[in-house]
């Protein structure tokens, strides 16, 4: 058990509601500014995670403190964030990609919600390059499922961390399974959500943390009060620090 997991477990040792409150305070909502192409998604997450610290991307540090004080507010025993959410992502520069990768490696959870379906081609390309470089993920060009003309069931079926159905947000970013950085093998990519036979949500171990990629935004569903979307987020936060059990290994 690492020091961070020990501290997390110790701090979480109270009652279940108290533990949940703590976990809610250990979230960071990363505001990409003009590169957040779905502001309503950011607002949806902000409404669903009132304890999260909302931080502009450029101020994100390698040791990101959260709203939770482990011992005493006056003494200033602030804790590190456990969950990082990047809603409605458009363009992502290399520097931010590196910082996100470092944070994930500190046993964090990174929920990366792609808004590439609502961004221009350049933004999509930078996002694709960043995800490939730092997370070994190959995303495909955004697509509008309805334009295919086929009648689709308008829900993304999530299998993890809760089995829920969440309405798709028109344009999805499918994920390829063939992502392989040249230099080293990477942990397997696990599909956690699909729609119309396309993989649009995956998770992958990244160092000591976990990346969750959402190719269909769920922030707007959170904002609209979708119970399944809230259940999905709460189930994720309830997992606490990343360890083998929380990852279902």
């Amino acid at each position: 058990m690492t020091r961070r997991i020990f501290l997390g477990a110790a701090a979480c040792a109270g009652s279940a509601p108290a533990r949940m409150r703590e976990l809610e305070l250990r979230c960071a909502l990363v505001d990409l500014g003009s590169d957040c192409v779905l502001r309503e998604s950011l607002e949806g997450f902000a409404g669903a995670m009132p304890g999260a610290i909302k931080i502009p991307a450029e101020q994100l540090t390698d040791w990101q403190e959260c709203q939770f004080y482990a011992v005493d507010r006056e003494l200033g025993h602030r804790q590190e964030c456990l969950f990082y959410v990047v809603p409605g992502a458009g363009a992502i520069n290399d520097d931010l990609g590196l910082r996100l990768a470092r944070l994930v490696d500190r046993e964090g959870w990174l929920v990366f919600e792609s808004g590439a379906g609502f961004a221009d081609e350049t933004a999509f390309r930078t996002q694709r390059e960043m995800l490939a470089s730092y997370f070994g993920l190959a995303i495909e060009r955004p697509m509008n499922l309805r334009e295919s003309g086929e009648s689709i069931v308008p829900y993304v079926d999530y299998a993890w961390p809760a089995a829920v159905k969440i309405r798709d947000f028109s344009r999805v970013v499918p994920v390829g399974l063939a992502a392989r950085p040249a230099e080293a093998p990477v942990p397997p990519l696990e599909v956690i959500g699909a729609i119309a036979g396309r993989r649009v949500a995956v998770r992958r171990r990244v160092g000591r943390g976990v990346l969750i990629f959402l190719g269909s935004p769920i922030g707007p569903a959170l904002g609209a009060g979708d119970r399944d979307a809230h259940r999905w987020l709460k189930s994720l936060m309830a997992l606490g620090p990343v360890d083998s059990t929380s990852f279902g290994e």
Binding site: S151, I152, V153, P154, Y155, V164, K165, D228
Partner: peptide
């Protein structure tokens, strides 16, 4: 009617 969608919504 989009019957697959209706079926999925009932599940949901």
């Amino acid at each position: 009617n989009n019957w697959p969608a209706i079926r999925a919504a009932l599940d949901k």
